[in-house]
């Protein structure tokens, strides 16, 4: 299967601190890769580089054949809106917009806001009854599902999750993971997810373990 992500000797340093040591990684199309590690192990740094939110200090990083290191600021913005959906641990929803409008905001940057499509995306994540609610009126799990709807609304080929269940209880975590699996099976996008949680990691196809900026271990996981 063709690779959606290919990195070679990828590094990221902040001054004297090397957050990511030379990393060679290949993620095939449609794979769900989980990245595990302690705080400061370089997993979020890797995720930011894969999402075009940060620039590498060295090496190469190709996502769907595009070398992200060579893209301009506006090129990276185009890459983020066309190819990537990001789910954050803190949800990062815009507080003055409703659930529906938060999803439409992502459409605005991508193409044109389409209320029907946004409503459909929220119905897919089980929030058809919460369209007009603002983030402050939603539970943590519901906010995360809005975040997922926002991330998938533009049909990205790569979904990045930065500890998306980090702030959720067990029930909500399971609900979110089931939802992600269902969507992945339907849309066939790839997922790269950072987590501390072994149970969450078990939902993926493969797990890599990082420590001190290095990939230290890699394992195939059994599906839940």
């Amino acid at each position: 299967m063709a690779a959606i992500i290919e990195t070679s000797g990828l590094t990221r340093s902040y001054g004297d601190i090397c957050a990511l040591k030379p990393l060679d990684l290949c993620v095939p199309e449609g794979e769900w890769l989980t990245v595990m590690g302690h705080s400061g192990s370089g997993k979020s740094t890797l995720l930011n580089l894969l999402g075009g939110l940060d620039r590498p200090s060295g090496g190469s990083i190709h996502v769907r054949g595009t070398d992200l290191a060579t893209l301009s600021e506006d090129g990276l913005a185009r890459f983020r809106r066309d190819c990537v959906g990001i789910i954050f641990q803190q949800h990062h929803l815009i507080p003055y917009l409703t659930a529906l409008e938060n999803v439409m905001m992502s459409q605005y940057f991508h193409s044109v806001p389409d209320e029907a499509e946004a409503r459909h995306a929220l119905e897919r994540v089980g929030l058809g009854h919460r369209l007009k609610n603002r983030p402050g009126e939603l539970s943590g799990g519901e906010q995360q599902r809005v975040c997922i709807a926002r991330a998938i609304i533009n049909s990205p080929r790569l979904l990045l999750g930065d500890e998306p269940t980090g702030n959720l209880d067990h029930k909500s975590t399971t609900m979110v993971m089931e939802l992600l699996r269902e969507l992945r099976d339907e849309e066939r996008f790839s997922i790269v997810m950072v987590t501390h949680n072994q149970e969450v990691a078990a939902w993926g196809d493969r797990t890599i373990h990082m420590d001190d900026g290095c990939l230290v271990r890699e394992e195939r996981t059994k599906s839940c």
Binding site: G51, L53, E73, D74, A77, R78, F79, R80, R81, D82, V84, I86, H92, I94, M105, S106, F109, H110, R150
Partner: peptide, 16 residues
């Protein structure tokens, strides 16, 4: 700033 960061993460260009 968080909102601006989020908009950039969603693919909002500087022009947007």
């Amino acid at each position: 700033s968080k909102e601006i960061g989020l908009m950039k993460a969603m693919g909002g260009s500087r022009w947007d």
